[in-house]
Design a protein around this nucleic acid. Structure first.
Lengths: 138, 138
DNA sequence: TAATAATTGCAATTTTGTTGCAAAAATTTT
DNA sequence: AAAATTTTTGCAACAAAATTGCAATTATTA
């Protein structure tokens, strides 16, 4: 798992820089989603806030990570699974937020049931945010 | 429907002030969800930004309104239906965001199918954010 | 109507996110 | 492998969004 971040960067035609590698490593090492603050604290090296903003944006643009809608409207990011590509994200996500430890997990493998909407509504994409107690806190 | 806001305030043991009445009226008059900016612009009278923040927070605490998770992490609020009470919210919400006109509608009446989560996960509340084209833009 | 309690608005501050630009680093070309 | 080119970084300045303390005002209670 040493060069995973490097692989991902190359595969997405991004220049390989220390910040990108370290930030990507953080995502790879983490089960849960990360906030900007988590990244600022845990990269080991101190990167400029602006660099982190720009790196996250780049990763989102390339489809490497995606943002997670949260009830408290904090901004969270999580790794995309393989199905995601640039400009063409996997359209359905289930995210689980633990009320206890606050971890946010992206459950890509669970499929979202089809919803019956009122007449005239044409759904394109669904995000499901489930909160409760996670498996480790239970 | 004249004194609806007044009723709601009294029912929730809140002192009746102009800002609270006007802001609540705005929610009652609107189908869609409201952002802080919408409220700042449309109350007729100009309230201090801080007052609006505090009023919204009070309403959330009392279970009169709830926040909506959005994909772009903007902060939206919508009226809770009757099932919601202080500290005991209606636990499932479906929100529809129109990609065209950007309206956000809270579809309280639609039930969310039960999701199969991995072992150990105990769901408490689900927010579903569906985006697409709404009935008026379709 | 007076006394008490709660809310408002202002000022100051903090947090969060953005932009332009020169220096530094990464990639490409020779 | 070094020079030329392109990209990225970090700083500074700025802008927007949200929070806090406090005195003045407004609402409720007695």
């Amino acid at each position: 798992m040493k060069g995973a971040s490097l692989e991902i960067l190359k595969h997405n035609h991004l220049s390989v820089t220390e910040s990108r590698k370290k930030i990507l490593d953080l995502f790879l090492a983490n089960i849960g989603a990360l906030a900007h603050a988590d990244i600022e604290k845990n990269t080991g090296v101190q990167f400029d806030r602006v660099t982190i903003y720009r790196t996250l944006q780049t990763f989102v643009d390339k489809g490497i990570i995606h943002t997670i809608p949260t009830a408290d409207n904090s901004v969270l990011y999580a790794l995309c699974k393989d199905e995601c590509e640039q400009g063409h994200h996997h359209d359905n996500h289930i995210h689980f937020i633990c009320d206890t430890c606050n971890i946010t997990i992206c459950m890509d493998h669970i499929t979202i049931p089809v919803l019956k909407l009122p007449k005239g509504f044409a759904p394109k994409r669904s995000d499901v945010v489930v909160s409760g107690i996670c498996n480790r806190c239970n």
